[in-house]
Design a protein around this nucleic acid. Structure first.
Lengths: 190, 190
DNA sequence: GCACATACCTAAACCTATTAGGCTAGTGCG
DNA sequence: CGCACTAGCCTAATAGGTTTAGGTATGTGC
């Protein structure tokens, strides 16, 4: 029984992220985390400001991880290839880490959001769109479209919305990427 | 002090929905509801099975309300006009009733989902798409696309994702409806 | 005007969150 | 080496939320 369990904010947040993936982000609780480390709940409050703080940190971690994957996946790709890779990163991440993915959709206060990896996400979306011939404000509209379709699709798919009907979800995904690619090549609004 | 407060499941669910819109769906709690009716918490358990039950019922109510609005809005419309109306109903409902809209996105167990107004939503999406020349499986893909874009957009917008940059969110909305309409007119995949 | 079902209550057990203050094990300095 | 100090974890306590069991009283219907 070592009286020092070696808690750090870092380790707590990582454990919280894993817990989120296992039992769902909603079930991530300071108490559950304390149980995992075999430590009393109050002990976590030296490392975390609050339950909300824990959740926010998990969100930030997830955003970082996704941004890192995005930047790897996008290296050397352009056009439709890049578009597909971009969407694939999100979908894959959500499958592998459903709890983290949910966490990443937390609404952060403006300062926190600005300091997060969120802006990197949009930057990368913009980078992809540079492969299409869009001029402002179309490019911004398109960034928002990508966010909407991909996040919307993944959240419906995760909720099981497409699981009990044919065609398979994978086919719809490909269909959507194809058509969004085509959409981005249509001439700007008249 | 009438010893009978006149509680019914119906009234509790409606009050819960209003509470959700005021303070957020996450904050809807059996206790808060009891407070509103000036009644002890345990009293609600004759009318509600559990906290989860309350939330599910709010979700079902919201799905019904949206489906009703959809069917009104779609009457007499077709093509792009119908498409725009369809999206508008969701966006408007989410603005007016943010708590209910969030509730509606709860994942329901399969039987509950099947008995909900959810299927009416998809039926109406299909009805709109009949105005475009799609053949299966494209129509199903398109139903899923509509769900993804609209729900995705609304959830990003609600989270404040578009509020601090130009162009205004409204413009993007119009742009997206335009382009999705165009997308649905492009010839099927080869 | 009585019997009964119903609607609401009290009481209690159990969870989570959060704060205040205590004990002790390592750290660093003389 | 040993002392003082600062972390790091603990106990204790408060405040809410959920849920169940069992009581009391109210209004309905015979």
């Amino acid at each position: 029984m070592s009286p020092r369990a070696g808690l750090t904010t870092e380790r707590l947040v990582r454990a919280g992220a894993e817990l989120a993936d296992e039992v769902g982000f909603e079930q991530v609780t300071v108490s559950a985390l304390a149980r995992q480390f075999d430590v009393k709940v109050a002990s976590l409050y030296s490392h975390l400001k609050s339950s909300q703080d824990l959740k926010t940190r998990i969100a930030l971690l997830s955003l970082e991880e996704m941004a890192d994957r995005l930047s790897t996946a996008l290296a050397g790709r352009a056009g439709k290839d890049a578009l597909a890779a971009y969407g694939h990163v999100y979908r894959d991440y959500a499958r592998e880490h459903p709890g983290r993915y949910t966490a990443a959709r937390l609404t952060l206060d403006p300062e926190t959001a600005a300091a997060s990896a969120g802006p990197r996400h949009s930057q990368m979306a913009r980078a992809i769109l540079r492969g299409y011939d869009l001029t402002e404000p179309d490019e911004t509209h398109a960034v928002r479209l990508l966010g909407s379709v991909f996040h919307g699709y993944i959240s419906l798919e995760t909720a099981g919305g497409f699981s009990h009907s044919s065609p398979a979800s994978d086919e719809t995904w490909v269909w959507i990427v194809d058509h969004v690619d085509a959409l981005l090549r249509t001439p700007p609004t008249p």
